[in-house]
Design a binder for these strands. Structure first.
Length: 579
DNA sequence: GCCGTTTTCGGCCCGACTGTTTTCAGTCG
């Protein structure tokens, strides 16, 4: 992936330039790097297609940076970068990742102690050498050591699914204070990014000091980084940091907008404000000294001539331009899901029996639940064979007739999560699959196939008339395993043709499809389903995570089949079989 | 170094807090 490689180099160039206090250029390089990272087309293809001229069409890329990209593609290196690296040969990426260390410190550490990487840094800090550098002290040395520990343990980011319950707990606790008038998470938590660096919480309240004091006394705090009059920062035993800010009620909207970010979204928004003769900051939207808006986020977007942008969309990937034109989709809501189609019961590896799962689903307000146990290839998961699937059908029929007697419209659907074999065939006979309400198929073995073979494997499964859904289509495990090598565009094309539904798997470490792939799928007109892949009824609540990623991928109700009425969903399954 | 339905030159987001200082630079979000 040249895009990521070049982006990384540009980020490093930006840091180098900041070391020398070069004005404005670092920002330009960062912008170009970000632009490359989020570019859907491979930059190599862009260059092949139209040379320097095409490169310059990439936002943030001008003459000079376009030439550097071309230089990298032609020669595999960028001379200016090599020169900078030679002058200060340090591991910018790693050192910069340590909390509290920025370009200037990297420079001082190298010039003073020849520190080039994390190992050097840790050694010097442990030896007490850093405190003797000018402008450094004992406290900074300690903070550096803690920063290194933190990086080692977590790689710096946490799963959204691990963070959300803790954030909910903190917010519930703060709400018990009568001084707290409004409260909301902000930052990447509110935008529901799949991983979170740290947590921001905003409070509107009457007695900031009391609220801050209460916050830093919460249970489970292992370190108080700072506590001012209106903000405090702490680390929890879980290992992540939480920042609290308290502000007056009339600034809550502008502060929420400001601290929700993303940085890129806000920069773009502030530019619009400036163009209109306003100034936008966390205290409000101003014309001169006069405040125009600030009490609510909605009022700020409206005053800037934009339709409201949901937090999950605020990444400056086109949402602002689209909002200006009133073309934003009405993205799926957290209450729009009518059922979960990927749930494992105690028939295979799951914990709960089908009746317990059905009961839990009803309590969540669902209209149906789909039982989709593993099939026989997955011996380790005690996968079901054809005969066992038939027996399971009988049990499900029995449960459904009970619901009928009780005059309940709730239904248990019968599916399975079959295995896509290396040759693209399915490990269950077609006549058994045809008896099910629907079939999920997924790759669970031989994950390291070549791109062409893996793509063909999944395409063959999609062309199978019995297969309705492909589970966790790219196979990635966040922070553990990359996606399989697949031609995703080709997968989308065939999914559309064959009316095969792609899954958004809500399991916290999967979230597969991920946001950018969801957005591609939506744009391609492919239908999606949001499932939890629950192996225990407590996991049914993961649905929120999948919905959040669907929202980040700009998906509307019409794109998500389990937001449809059940009849329409069943008809869609049938369409595939008749074909 | 990039960018332009006010510009091909002159702008580029900005405030809080820490740690080191004795008035402020660096980092963060």
């Amino acid at each position: 992936m040249s895009n990521q490689e070049i982006a990384k180099i540009f980020y490093e160039i930006a840091v180098y330039l900041e070391m020398e206090e070069t004005p404005f250029k670092p920002f330009a390089y960062e912008k170009a790097a970000l632009s490359l990272e989020t570019l859907t087309e491979n930059v190599e293809d862009v260059y092949k297609r139209g040379g320097i001229k095409a490169l310059k069409e990439i936002p943030g890329v001008g003459e000079s940076i376009a030439e550097k990209i071309a230089e990298y593609l032609e020669t595999g290196k960028i001379k200016e970068y090599q020169d900078l690296k030679k002058k200060t040969p340090v591991d910018i990426e790693k050192l910069n990742a340590v909390e509290g260390i920025g370009p200037k410190m990297i420079k001082d550490l190298y010039q003073g102690l020849k520190i080039k990487n994390l190992q050097d840094l840790e050694k010097a800090a442990k030896a007490g050498q850093i405190r003797n550098l000018p402008n450094f002290g004992e406290k900074t040395e300690q903070n550096i050591l803690q920063g290194i520990e933190f990086l080692k343990r977590t790689k710096g980011r946490f799963l959204l699914g691990d963070i959300l319950p803790v954030v909910d707990g903190i917010i519930a606790s703060l709400k018990s204070l009568k001084e707290v008038e409004k409260i909301s998470p902000a930052g990447s938590v509110r935008r529901m990014k799949e991983t979170i660096g740290d947590v921001d919480i905003l409070v509107a309240g009457s007695n900031p000091k009391k609220i801050v004091d209460y916050f830093v006394s919460l249970q489970g705090i292992v370190k108080i980084w700072s506590r001012g009059l209106t903000k405090a920062s702490i680390r929890l035993a879980e290992g992540f940091d939480v920042d609290l800010r308290v502000l007056p009620e009339n600034q809550f909207g502008s502060a929420l907008q400001y601290f929700t970010g993303s940085k890129e979204h806000n920069i773009a928004l502030r530019k619009i404000a400036i163009d209109k003769g306003f100034k936008l900051n966390e205290y409000g939207l101003f014309r001169g000294k006069k405040i125009i808006a600030g009490k609510t986020e909605e009022s700020i977007y409206e005053s800037l001539g934009l339709f409201y942008v949901e937090p999950e969309l605020r990444e400056n990937t086109g949402e602002i331009e689209t909002a200006l034109k009133d073309k934003l989709p009405e993205i799926i809501g957290y209450q729009n899901i009518k059922g979960d189609l990927h749930v494992h019961s105690d028939w295979n590896g799951g914990v709960n029996n089908i009746e317990e799962l059905a009961e839990a689903a009803q309590e969540m307000g669902y209209e149906y639940i789909g039982i989709s146990d593993h099939t026989k290839f997955l011996v380790i998961e005690r996968g079901l064979d054809e005969k066992q699937l038939l027996q399971q059908r009988k049990e499900i029929d029995k449960i459904n007739s009970k619901f009928q007697i009780l005059n309940s419209k709730f239904r248990v659907l019968h599916g399975c999560e079959a295995n896509i074999m290396a040759d693209g065939s399915i490990d269950i006979k077609a006549e058994a699959l045809a008896k099910l309400d629907y079939v999920i198929a997924g790759v669970h073995s031989q994950l390291k196939m070549k791109k062409k073979e893996m793509t063909e494997r999944i395409i063959k499964a999609m062309k199978n008339p019995n297969v309705d859904i492909i589970s966790h289509p790219t196979g990635r495990i966040i922070q553990h395993r990359d996606e399989y090598e697949i031609d995703f565009d080709e997968i989308l094309k065939v999914a559309k043709e064959t009316k095969t539904i792609l899954e958004i798997n809500s399991s916290p470490s999967r979230l597969d499809l991920k946001d950018v792939n969801i957005r591609k799928a939506v744009a391609a007109g492919v239908k999606l389903v949001i499932n939890t892949d629950s192996h225990h009824l407590d996991q049914l609540r993961f649905m929120e995570l999948g919905i959040s990623q669907a929202r980040r991928g700009w998906a509307a109700k019409k794109d998500i089949v389990n937001a449809w009425p059940l009849e329409k969903l069943l008809k869609f399954f049938k369409k595939k079989i008749i074909k």
